[in-house]
């Protein structure tokens, strides 16, 4: 546990050292702020004091920003050879992967905390459903964790950050829309199956305020699977085959 936190702290520090964090935060707040408050079907046209507009926007902005955060995490260490330093220290591969996962998730958490003024503003404007807002944030966090773990996996298999980024987007795209599109094209069992695989149905039900264990199981299994896959990639070097 301690070692995980040491790695997470270092990674979070290098986010803020290398401007990545600031660029990501400014871009995230800029995009979602613009579309939430100023442009298109914005928050004032809803006649309802809630953050649904923001949640819909963040659902897409995070989808694009997360691979940009995770692409570096393991690919860079693979490339510069620092992975060798890390893996010859008395820590496990799981601690490396989970430490990096924690750092990314904390950065997203900071980004989401910075949108708290949105919530306070809406609260000033009218009666807000606090529970639904809370679960909306929870949904974003769970979705982020899912894409972070997928991003870490693609970052672990390559030493090229661009490849890691594109692969994370590609795999993410399946979860984000392609499974849903497939679900519409199939009926019966196949349709339900693909609908279950897509992130959106689970995200929507949580952000509407319904916390179903089925959805939680879905998110946690995808996260777990992706993280374990990255761990396996890292420990493959050490197999006697």
């Amino acid at each position: 546990m301690n070692k995980i936190w040491i790695i997470a702290k270092k990674e979070l520090g290098s986010f803020f050292d290398s401007l990545t964090a600031y660029i990501m935060l400014v871009a995230f707040l800029g995009f979602s702020g613009f579309f939430t408050w100023l442009y298109g079907a914005d928050i004032f046209l809803r006649n309802q004091a809630d953050l649904q507009v923001f949640f819909n926007i963040a659902y897409w902005t995070l989808f694009f920003f997360i691979p940009a955060i995770t692409m570096r995490m393991l690919a860079e260490e693979n490339k510069t050879g620092t992975m060798e330093l890390l893996l010859t220290k008395p820590i496990t591969e799981w601690q490396v992967v989970f430490g990096k996962f924690t750092a990314c998730l904390l950065l997203i958490l900071i980004a989401l905390l910075l949108t708290l003024p949105y919530y306070l503003t809406v609260w000033k404007l009218g009666p807000v459903d606090h529970g639904a807002t809370l679960t909306g944030y929870l949904g974003l966090l769970l979705m982020s964790a899912t894409y972070i773990s997928i991003g870490l996996f693609t970052s672990s298999v390559t030493s090229n950050q661009i490849v890691a980024f594109l692969m994370a987007l590609l795999i993410g795209l399946f979860f984000h829309i392609i499974f849903d599109v497939l679900a519409h094209n199939f009926t019966g069992g196949m349709g339900t199956f693909f609908a279950y695989l897509g992130v959106s149905s689970h995200y929507e039900s949580i952000s509407r305020g319904v916390i179903d264990s089925k959805d939680l199981v879905y998110f946690f299994s995808v996260i777990f699977l992706a993280l374990v896959s990255s761990e396996i990639v890292l420990s493959k070097r050490n197999l006697a085959d």
Binding site: I6, K10, S14, D17, T82, L85, T88, P90
Partner: peptide, 27 residues
Amino acid sequence: IGYLPENNPLYLDMPVIDYLAYTAALQ
């Protein structure tokens, strides 16, 4: 074991002191 790998890989964007603190903690 203390290990210095070939080509001496390091985190180039970290200050020397922070880097040593990081390795010490990991060790």
